[in-house]
């Protein structure tokens, strides 16, 4: 394998400064995706800046009653935190639906957002891929795409974002904070990922060299009644072929608040605002849930081998919303 530098940093300004000195550097969190990509030759960093010792490993309540999650908090610690389990159960469920115990012990929250697609063309350097090698083409459109995008894709790229955690964060209105040499910044989660367009290699709105420092969840009573459900091709150790994160507040049979995000359908966790608008103020009925799902999926443009996803997502949205509506008392929500 290629030789590369490795340096552990202990403070955020030092990390950002080091990154500024070496454009071909990468921040190393848990390494659960980056190291794989290095083995495959997709990533060839000159320097790994190990950020796991940064003081970003805390989960703390915010003044407004929300939650701030440091970027180096591990997936395992995030999923186990009582404030997350009871205040944002969909997030715990999403994290636990991903990877394995060993990987979750290594993987970090910041790294999770920046993991790359598992599209087989992206990870094989012998093949074209616009995301890896801009302008080389997207063979997935006419090739193997059974787990590719049905929403928001273009002919330049039909890959999906693999994160489970991100789907819950999209539904929960998370805000991503980062640090650059010029100071800190913030991005709403829905603005964090860029549209595919004709630049699928540009994935996030983070400024160059920026270090994700944390994620803030705003207070959201509706989130206490939330769920994440993932469907995959084996019972464990596989990425989603479709997933849903949803939160629902129902009173007197009427949907008062709703949050909905879809996974494994687009280049980013897909916030389903069209469906949310259809739901809020309407009846908490199966017909209304079906109509909301259909409204969101009306924009779907499936490829020949992934049209099953339209039916899958419709069924999943309806099933998860129905379960949430039937949940009599959100306080009884337990994490499985």
């Amino acid at each position: 394998m290629r030789e590369f530098g490795y340096q552990r940093v202990h403070d955020v300004p030092g990390a950002v400064a080091l990154r500024g000195e070496e454009p071909a550097a990468r921040y190393l969190g848990g390494g659960t995706n980056l190291v794989d990509l290095m083995k495959a030759g997709v990533e060839r960093p000159a320097l790994l800046i190990d950020i796991r010792e940064l003081p970003l490993d805390r989960i703390e309540a915010t003044a407004s009653g929300g939650l701030h999650i440091g970027a180096t908090v591990t997936n395992s610690d995030l999923a186990a935190h009582p404030r997350v389990r009871f205040g944002y159960p969909a997030l715990t469920q999403a994290v636990l639906a991903g990877a394995s115990g060993q990987l979750r012990n290594m993987a970090t929250v910041g790294g999770n957002l920046l993991q790359r697609t598992r599209c087989g063309y992206f990870t094989d350097t012998a093949l074209p891929c616009n995301k890896r090698s801009p302008g080389s083409g997207c063979p997935a459109v006419a090739g193997e795409h059974h787990n590719h995008a049905i929403l928001g894709a273009t002919e330049h790229c039909v890959a999906v974002h693999p994160s489970d955690m991100g789907v819950a964060l999209a539904a929960l209105d998370a805000v991503v904070s980062y640090e650059t040499a010029d100071g800190p910044g913030e991005l709403a989660f829905t603005d964090f990922y860029l549209p595919v367009g004709d630049t699928p290699h540009r994935e996030t709105a983070l400024p160059g060299g920026a270090l994700i420092t944390g994620i803030t969840l705003p207070p959201a009573p509706v989130a206490a009644n939330s769920r994440y459900r993932k469907v995959r091709e084996r019972a464990s150790y596989a990425f989603a072929i479709g997933s849903v994160a949803a939160a629902l507040e129902v009173r007197d049979g009427v949907v008062r608040d709703a949050r909905l995000a879809l996974g494994a359908v687009a280049s980013r966790p897909w916030r389903a605002r069209t469906a949310e608008r259809a739901l809020i103020g309407g009846p908490a009925s199966a017909e209304a849930f079906e109509a909301a799902a259909d409204a969101e999926l009306a924009a779907a443009e499936p490829l020949p081998h992934n049209r099953y996803k339209v039916a899958l997502m419709r069924n999943l949205v309806v099933a998860v919303l129905t379960e949430l509506a039937e949940q009599a008392d959100p306080a009884e929500e337990t994490v499985r």
Partner: peptide, 20 residues
């Protein structure tokens, strides 16, 4: 198109996991 495999590794080639 290429004549080769896509996902020729143990993440891409699924066999039953313990949970299955």
């Amino acid at each position: 198109m290429s004549g080769g495999h896509i996902g020729a590794d143990l993440a891409g080639y699924h066999f039953a996991a313990n949970a299955d």
